[in-house]
């Protein structure tokens, strides 16, 4: 095309960065299959034969198994419930059904700007008075709550982009708002709902600050907390980099797999709430 020639070196640069990213990821996975000695002595050698010892270390010493189970439970439950709770609200707000609509939409949007460190202590104090700290229920509730601004905001934009004709037709047939929403709108809205679910799953999987403060029992910790714990433990015993890389893989690979599977939904989702 027009600028093809002048961009050739730039294109080479882009592919170099892309290749470096892939190489970095591959190197992390390969390193996780090496003995700790080989990690240092032969950083470039392929692990032949590959060893799964590091993963055993990560599971036994680093508590990554328990943490992975907790992360899966909290991530899935909170993301599903966040979408289930946010979807009707976003729909109602997108079809501004009364005068309260605009200020409410604004409140949800404002909520996206509140950083975790502001609400960290109040949430901790509240959950601790309900004896819900260090419980999966407490963390799940906190994730649903903190997901609201973002999920409602994205879904409101998404519902706005859907044409209203189907709903009008349903209304002419005598369907009420709930019936219309459940039977007519939701089936059409599935791609948007899945996108928001996946984005929320990624956010909760990687969330660190709340998990660190709320989950102070090893039995209840999620993956980011386990990873930090393992890293700190190594300070005293000398870093077991093999185990560390295995732990990193436990944190990273599920997200990479998810992204490989539904990546388009994720990247499309970034522009869902932006109108147009």
């Amino acid at each position: 095309m027009r600028t093809t020639r002048s961009l050739a070196p730039m294109r080479a640069a882009v592919w170099t960065i892309v290749a470096a990213n892939v190489a970095l990821l591959a190197w992390v996975v390969i390193t996780s299959l090496k003995t700790t000695r080989d990690v240092f002595d032969h950083p470039w050698r392929l692990p032949i034969p590959p060893t799964l010892d590091n993963y055993l270390t990560a599971l036994e010493v680093g508590n990554f198994g328990r943490a992975a189970v907790n992360s899966v439970i909290v991530g899935l439950v909170s993301s599903v419930l966040a979408v289930v709770i946010a979807a009707p609200a976003a729909y109602a707000l997108s079809r501004t059904m009364n005068r309260a609509g605009r200020p409410l939409t604004l409140l949800f949007a404002l909520g996206t700007g509140v950083p975790t460190q502001v609400i960290l202590l109040p949430i901790f104090l509240m959950l601790s008075s309900l004896e819900l700290t260090s419980t999966l229920t407490g963390l799940t509730l906190a994730y649903i709550g903190t997901a609201m601004p973002f999920t409602v905001f994205l879904l409101t934009g998404f519902f706005r982009s859907l044409p209203g004709e189907l709903e009008e037709a349903a209304a002419l047939d005598g369907a009420g708002a709930w019936t219309t929403f459940l039977r007519v709108v939701l089936p059409v809205a599935r791609p948007g709902l899945v996108t928001v679910f996946v984005l929320q799953l990624i956010v909760s999987w990687n969330e660190t600050m709340l998990a660190l403060v709320l989950m102070q029992e090893t039995e209840r910790e999620t993956l980011p907390v386990a990873l930090i714990g393992f890293a700190q433990q190594q300070q005293y015993t000398g870093t077991n980099w093999g185990g560390m890389f295995a732990g990193i893989c436990v944190v990273v690979l599920p997200m990479i797999a998810l992204f490989a599977w539904v990546g388009r939904r994720v990247t499309d989702g970034l522009t869902l709430g932006m109108g147009k």
């Binding site: 960065i17 990479i256 998810l258």
Partner: peptide
């Protein structure tokens, strides 16, 4: 290029 975004910053 997007993938670092879905990886925990701890990594």
């Amino acid at each position: 290029l997007f993938f670092p975004n879905i990886v925990s910053a701890l990594v």
